[in-house]
Design a protein around this nucleic acid. Sequence first.
RNA 1: GCCCCCAUAGUUCAGUGGAUAGAACAGAGGAUUCCUAAUCCUCAGACGCGGGUUCGAUUCCCGCUGGGGGUGCCA
Length: 572
Amino acid sequence: MTPTLSDRLAAHVLAGARSLGLPDDDAALTPTALAAHGDFQTNLAFRLAKARGENPRALAERFLAALPNDPALVASATVAGPGFINFKVTEAALAADVGARLGDDLGAPRPGVGKTLVIDFSSPNVAKRMHIGHLRSTIIGHALDGMFRFLGWRVIADNHIGDWGTQFGKLIVGWDRWRDDAAFAADPIGELQRIYQRFGEIEDPDGELATASRVATARLQAGDPELRALWRRFVDASMVEFDAVYARLGVRFDAVLGESAYEAALAGIVEKLLADGLAEVSDGAVVVRLTADDGPGLGEAPFLVRKADGAALYGTTDLATVDHRLATWAPDLIAYVTDMRQQLHFRQLFAVCRRRGIQVPFQHVGFGLLRLPGGKTASTKSGVVLNLVDVLDEAVARARAVVDQRSDTLSEDERAAIAETVGVAALKYQDLSQNPQSDIVFDWDKSLALDGNTAPYLLYAHARCRSVLRRAGDAAPGPVVLVDPSERELAMSVARTPDVIRQAAAAWRPNLLCDHLYGTTQAFSRFWERCRVVGDDVPADVTASRLTLVTATATSLRTGLGLLGIRALDRM
RNA sequence: GCCCCCAUAGUUCAGUGGAUAGAACAGAGGAUUCCUAAUCCUCAGACGCGGGUUCGAUUCCCGCUGGGGGUGCCA
């Protein structure tokens, strides 16, 4: 592995701070906003000057003088404006860096080696079709999974399926009365969904249905073999469909443990909380009372772990799940990727875990709602449902129309495969490229767009890279020599990719990686317009250099897209 | 009531207390004897309002307005 240019410059800056007698552990190093200011800048002089009440410009001048001499790395270092220190790295250092990033691991440092992350995402409910609202958790979670693994973490992607609860009583009752076996055989989830909806719509003036449903739920949870078998059928049928969607999205899990897996542990959790004095009985229910000391606003609402009727709640299940994860994987960090509406729940959950003596840090990655134009939320409740598979199909159909128009020399099979990849990638990238915490407006034309800052743009650039590498034939890659400005810009972007992956993971924000890959692609497109790689009029050493640069670009794009769950194409 | 989130160009979105706030789409105009034009180049266009902290605020704090979400027995 090779430290990145910014790692090396940060060390350079911190060495300067030490020799100035002002040791620090943050070099405040960032890429410059404008190329005219160099490659990187440090704003450390501002911070140090503020702490010491000095003039920042004067301190920056002293700082500059105190920097070590490193002519191999630093081409120039200058003080600018009120106290910025701008660095330009040498052509040789940049060229060498590009040459070190040709493998799939990008030669990147792996600071996560030895650490384990459990990340909980997707978590659909059994007997309901996945809709567009499930997309965010699934693909943001998967992208975080990919980025952390890239950084060396052992990652356990855990799909916490909603396979337990009162909805099964309703399903069982409805199944007995209204099921259509042929419909179930043809489309299991569709039939289960129909039964469930009918249960909600039908008149039940005497509460007869409600009673039957409660009885069925109780029998199921008591282990009635017949109902258990029926429940298993519902779960299995749902999982078949979920797995098909995951395969299509390219999403993987290390563990698929539904809520039912924790059923046996729930009573013990509640008893222990009571015995330890952490929980109390209140209005017949069992609650953990938190205070403002547990976190802002947490003193208001208690955390419910058992209802007055004796049933456990999702919070109880979540506590049992934490116990299981700690015992099974001994993680260093546990993360949950859910929509922001569950923020309070997780803050409470984490606080209760801390009270139970659990030291492991938790992270709730809350993302914004997906809404439709006009402000409606896309949910079963509002009656506006966009089935995920239907959206994927439409995305692929739109991609296919473009493939047929642009790539008419390719075979039918190739075109179908390309359209599938491009369509699904476009939908995923559209989501991933936005800040998770922002609400998303789903609009068919925007969400499935194939032009502009979209996955197809990145995939196309990668395909061009592969194309020229195929054409290079026997010509071998060689040392990088940066001649054209577009080459330097591209090289710098490629060199920064490992830094960006680290930052994106640390911020739990895949969109930072999307932004960077888009920038790399823009740089590549400009390079492509200006610089020929192979040809009779291109000197051999220039071809060799550019083949290395193109290889590094292709690797950076392929690896970066791969972390986002998007497979790069060699042709399109 | 209380708590949380959001407000950037016509639209959809980026933006780490830092230098001239970036893209895309839509709009106007250009580029292809040559490695994939699903491309590139040019033009035009924005930080809700009022205070505060700071050398410096779209960013942090307070208030206001507008929108969304949550809030003891759903998840």
